[in-house]
Amino acid sequence: MSISTKSLGLHLGLLAVLFVLQFVLPAYHHGNIARIMVLASYAIGFNILFGYTGLLSLGHALFFAAGMYGMGLVVNQFGLPPFSALLVGLLVGGLVALALGLLALRTEGVAFMIVTLMFAQAGYLTVLYFGEYTRGDEGFVIQQAERVMWGIDLSDPTNRYFAALVIFGVSLLVTLKLVQTPFGKVLIAIRENEERARMLGYDVFLHKLAAVVLSGVISAFAGASYGLLFGYVGASFASVQYSIFPLLWVLLGGAGTVLGPFVGTLFMFYLIDLSSGITSAYMLIAGVTLVALTLFAPQGFVGELRKRVWRWLP
């Protein structure tokens, strides 16, 4: 069996398990897994830029929020149907990513991190400034009647779960295909040795820009989907916290692995959920656990699995 066939089988197997879980999970975990799948799609978008291209962005909440507000505002202000609104969210996210990429890629290293953070903060402040439309920190609700796509009510838990599974499945399989293409291999080459990739004749700037745009579009897709499926759009999703979350999820699961973002998101979500039920100082428990994992599993769960057991994992 070829490596590509084994990889495809493993990732389709995960999607099959998630499909079956819809029928056996209790209501609480059913809702949690749906939320985790959408957030994992966001982490997948971040992983393309950080894990595969080697560009650390501290402003990815800008793309997530761009998709969410692009979708939410056209539904709230103009009554656009959900599918068209999702496309608007994707378009807005892509344009924001293109603009940021053209500017931020003039820098590198720490400067790139700072520039992306500043742009994200500017986006957050813009959301607050136009509070007349965005409702600022309070946010706004997308009504149930506005969340019906092709006759399917996305506020229904079962429909929402399957929609989240489709969103996650598309993001996962697109990334799996990407890393097997020549374009994906060039991104990895840029991550490993940018100067050598340039000497081999590759246009490093254009490849980086394409990675920023693709990462931004997938993140915006997750943001727009999150707002539509869970019926809420708020400024908290544009804050620094939502730029740090995908970094943690990817580091925990394994940067530069296709499955890492999902594993990291799942682990972090339930770590906080379970520890908050034990003590009000739940972030202390989460922090100690994260430090321990960083020390003893520096490549993340899936990264360590690839290093020690399955070297063929993409």
Rank of each mutant, 00 (worst) to 15 (best):
T53M: 15
A224N: 12
H30C: 06
L128T: 06
L12A: 04
L100V: 13
I167Q: 01
F112E: 11
G227L: 01
L21C: 13
N32A: 15
P298H: 04
V110M: 13
E132D: 11
V250H: 02
S41G: 09
V217P: 09
G231W: 00
K6M: 05
R106A: 09
L95R: 13
E146A: 14
S239E: 12
S171Q: 01
L128G: 15
H30R: 10
G13M: 08
L173D: 00
A235L: 05
R106Q: 12
S7T: 15
F46I: 04
A99C: 09
I36G: 07
V141W: 00
Y232W: 06
F168W: 01
W310P: 10
F230D: 09
A164G: 10
Q143K: 11
G254D: 05
S275R: 00
A122P: 07
L178G: 14
A197E: 12
L105Q: 04
V186E: 04
A197T: 09
P314A: 09
V213Q: 02
T158M: 07
A281S: 11
V24W: 06
I114E: 11
E194T: 09
I190Q: 01
M37G: 06
L165K: 11
I114G: 01
P182K: 01
L14N: 05
V74K: 04
G13S: 13
R308D: 13
Y133H: 14
V166S: 10
L247F: 15
Q143A: 13
L15D: 10
A16E: 08
L206W: 10
L117E: 04
G109S: 05
T181W: 01
F112P: 10
A286V: 06
F230E: 12
G51K: 01
G277V: 03
H207M: 15
T107E: 08
T126I: 12
G72R: 02
I190Y: 02
F237N: 14
G169V: 06
G13Q: 14
L173G: 07
A297H: 12
R147Y: 07
L128R: 06
L290V: 09
T158L: 12
W249E: 05
V88S: 03
M268A: 13
S225I: 00
G13R: 06
R196L: 15
I244D: 04
Y232D: 15
L56D: 08
F237G: 10
I190T: 11
A99E: 03
R308G: 14
I33L: 11
L90S: 07
V170E: 04
M149P: 09
A40W: 01
V212M: 15
I285Y: 04
A99I: 10
S215T: 09
L49G: 03
V92L: 13
H29D: 04
E304P: 06
F183L: 14
V74L: 07
L209M: 09
V148Q: 12
L125S: 10
G300D: 11
Y282D: 08
E108A: 03
P26Q: 12
L305V: 11
S275E: 00
V179E: 09
V75Y: 03
G223Y: 03
L229N: 12
S7C: 08
G131Y: 01
G59A: 03
G303L: 05
L103E: 05
S155M: 02
A224V: 02
A16C: 15
F205L: 14
L293Q: 08
A164S: 14
Y202N: 13
M199C: 08
Y226W: 14
L15F: 09
F50K: 07
S243F: 11
F140P: 14
P182F: 02
E192P: 09
Q144R: 15
